[in-house]
Design a protein around this nucleic acid. Structure first.
Lengths: 350, 350
DNA sequence: CTGAAAGCGCTTACAG
DNA sequence: CTGAAAGCGCTTACAG
C-alpha cells in the first residue's frame, strides 16, 4: 500500500461523454438525441436516428444510468439478499437470476445478510437508497417477520417490487422451492428401491424450509407406507458436523431397524456418511443415506449421494421474471418440479 | 403467470420521501438539510442537525442514491466480473469482496462474462453506463487483451478504477493470487513427505493462471530436486473429466515411476482420483494426488484432497481496498501467502 | 417529427 | 452556520 491519499476521493468524473455532446455533434436537440437513442421511441426520422447512433458510437457514448434513474425513479437493478454466496444453494439461485436478468437488461446486486429479521431490515433500509427495481428475498429467516413486513411494504409503496425465491411463507410473489414435493418424491422413490423405515436427520432450528421438508417426507411416507423416525437431537446445527452428531446418536441408540438415514440438507447428509463409517458400517450397502438440495457435486463423494434436485437455477430466473411483472392484486406463485437423483448411497434394497 | 400488463412499467415511484420533504418538515433549507444528513459536514448547528435527523428518521427518509450519483458522478458500487458464481473459486473471491465492501458502504454488483476478451469488452461497455466506482476483473481470460485494455482505459479516463483479482498479467492495481508461490510450496511440501517424481495434469489451454502454476511447480522442483513430467494431452479441459482423461492417459502409458499426480485445479484433481481408482490403484496409498485452490470441501472426498489454499477471500477483500484507493502513477500489488493443506491423498512416502 | 423548457432529487459553491 | 440558486445528465410533456 503506497498511497496516503484519502480513499474517499471519487476521481475526476466529469470527463465522460454526455448526451449533450452527442446532440451537439449530431446537430440535433437534446430531446431528439434522447429519443433517437431510446430503443422504443417511434417519433424520430430514420436518418436522424442513424446519424445520432453513429455519433454515439463514434464518441463511445454510454448513457448515465444514474441520471436516467433520477428521472425515471428506479434503477434497472435487482437486489438479491443472500446469507452466503459460497453456499452452493445461494450460488445456484443467484446464477439463475444473473442469467435471466442479463437478458432483460437488468443488473444483479448481491447483498449479504445473516437472514435474521433485524439484519434484513437494516439491509433493506440501505437498499432503499439504491431504488432497485426489485428485492429478491431468499433463505429461511429467523425472528418474527413483523418489522420486516413493515419495511417491505414501505419499499413497495415507493414503487419497488418484492419477490421471494424460497419458501412459501411470505405474502409476496414467490418462486417456490419445491421442498415439500421433493421430499415426498424422495420417500416414494426410496420405497420403490425397497426401503421401509427411515430416520430423519434435521437441524434443531425449526425454520420454514425444514418444516416443509419434514412435512413432505411425512406425507410421502404415509402414502407409501414407510415408517419415519425423526431424530431430534437438541442443538444440532445445519452443518456437516450437525449431521454427523445426530446420526451418531441414532446409531448409538441401536437404531430401531432403520434402513435409511435421510437428512434435511446435503451437507448434513455428508456428516451422516461419516457417522455411518465411524460406526463401522458401509454407507449404501449397510445403511442408505440421502440428502436434499442436490448441491453436492455427485461424483465428488464416494458413494455418490442420493439427493433431490430443486431446480434452483430456474427458480432464481423465475424470481427475476416475477420481479419484472407489474404488481398485481393477487399473489403469484411459480413452482418448478423437483427431481430425485438416485446414486450409490441408496442402492436397491432386498 | 396471470398478468398481461407490460413488464416495462416502473410503477409509481414518485411517492418516496424526498430531501425537500425532510427540509420542509424540519423548517430548514434544502442545503442545510443536505449538510445535516451528510456524515462528514461540520458546518451545521448541533441542534439543527439533530432536528433534521429526527425528522428523517420519523419519515423513514432514505436519500436517493441515483440523484446523489448524478451530482457526484459515480455510484458507490463495485462491479465484479466473474464467469460463474457457482464456481467456488469465484464465490470465495466475491464473498471476500462483499464483506469488505459492506464495511465501506459500497454495494457489489456481479456481472457474468465468459472471460473471452470480446465478451468482457461488451460487458464493460454496459457497465460504463452504471458509472460504478470500480471494476474488478477476475479469472484467466482468452483472447488478445488489446481491445480490453482500450475499453478499460476509457473507463479510467472517466474516473473509474480498474482492479484485478487474479493473475499478475494486466497493467492495473492487482490483488495477486499467489499461484506461483503456492505451487512452489506444494512441491517443497511433497518433497518433505518423501515424493520424488511428480506428473503434472494440466488443461490444454495455456492461460495465465496455469502458466503461473506450472512455473511455480517447476521452480520448486528444481530447488527441491524433484522430477517433473508434464502431461500434455491435447484438448484436455479444465474439468473433472479433463483431469480424469489426462490421468488415465498417464497411467496407460505405464507412468514413468511417478509417485504423485499434481493437478492444476482441485476439480481436475478429483478426476485424477477417479482415474487412479479406475486403474485399480488406491489413491494416496499407491499414488499421491494433489490439487490446487483448496476449493473442494476437504472432508467431502475420500481420501481428503491435498491442496493449496490461495486466500481467495482475503484477495477479494484486498481488491476492494485497492478499488477505493485514489489512482496513482505506480501500479500497486497486494499479495497474500499461500498455504499447503496436506490431507490423505498424499500420505508420507517411505 | 423536433426543439426548448421543465423537472427528477440531490450537492455544492456563493453570498450572507 | 444557513438559504437561495445553479448544476449534474437525463426524460418527457408541450408547443410547434
Amino acid at each position: 500500500m503506497t498511497s496516503g491519499i484519502s480513499s474517499d476521493q471519487a476521481g475526476a468524473r466529469r470527463a465522460a461523454v454526455t448526451l449533450r455532446d452527442v446532440a451537439r455533434e449530431a446537430g440535433v436537440g437534446l430531446g431528439t438525441a434522447s429519443r433517437a437513442l431510446a430503443p422504443g421511441s417511434q417519433y424520430v426520422a430514420d436518418d436522424v436516428r442513424s446519424r445520432v447512433l453513429a455519433v454515439a458510437e463514434r464518441l463511445s457514448y454510454r448513457p448515465n444510468a444514474s441520471a436516467r434513474a433520477t428521472t425515471t425513479g428506479s434503477t434497472p437493478t435487482i437486489a438479491v439478499l443472500v446469507s452466503d454466496i459460497r453456499d452452493p444453494y445461494y450460488a445456484q439461485l443467484v446464477h439463475g437470476a444473473i442469467g435471466k436478468a442479463r437478458g432483460d437488461g437488468q443488473m444483479v446486486t448481491i447483498t449479504g445478510t445473516d437472514h435474521a429479521v433485524d439484519d434484513e431490515v437494516r439491509v433493506i433500509r440501505m437498499l432503499r437508497s439504491q431504488r432497485p427495481r426489485a428485492l429478491v428475498l431468499t433463505g429461511p429467516r429467523t425472528g418474527s417477520p413483523a418489522s420486516l413486513l413493515r419495511e417491505l411494504e414501505r419499499y413497495e409503496r415507493d414503487g419497488g417490487r418484492v419477490v421471494v425465491a424460497g419458501d412459501d411463507d411470505l405474502p409476496f410473489d414467490t418462486a417456490v422451492v419445491p421442498r415439500q414435493e421433493g421430499a415426498r418424491l424422495l420417500v416414494t422413490t426410496l420405497r420403490e428401491l425397497g426401503y421401509r423405515s427411515i430416520a430423519l436427520i434435521r437441524p434443531a432450528a425449526d425454520t420454514a424450509d425444514v418444516r416443509a421438508w419434514e412435512a413432505g417426507i411425512v406425507q410421502g411416507a404415509r402414502a407409501a407406507g414407510v415408517r419415519v423416525d425423526v431424530v431430534r437431537t437438541p442443538g444440532v446445527e445445519r452443518s456437516r458436523d450437525g449431521g454427523r452428531a445426530a446420526t451418531a446418536e441414532l446409531l448409538d441408540d441401536g437404531r430401531p431397524d432403520v434402513d435409511a438415514v435421510v437428512a434435511a440438507t446435503d451437507t448434513m447428509a455428508l456428516g451422516a456418511l461419516s457417522a455411518v463409517r465411524d460406526a463401522g458400517l458401509e454407507p449404501g450397502r449397510d445403511l442408505g443415506v440421502a440428502g436434499f438440495d442436490d448441491v453436492v457435486d455427485a461424483d465428488d463423494v464416494v458413494p455418490g449421494l442420493t439427493s433431490v434436485d430443486l431446480s434452483l437455477e430456474a427458480i432464481g430466473g423465475a424470481a427475476v421474471d416475477l420481479a419484472l411483472l407489474a404488481p398485481a392484486a393477487e399473489r403469484r406463485r411459480i413452482e418448478f418440479d423437483a427431481r430425485v437423483a438416485v446414486r450409490g448411497s441408496t442402492p436397491p434394497r432386498g
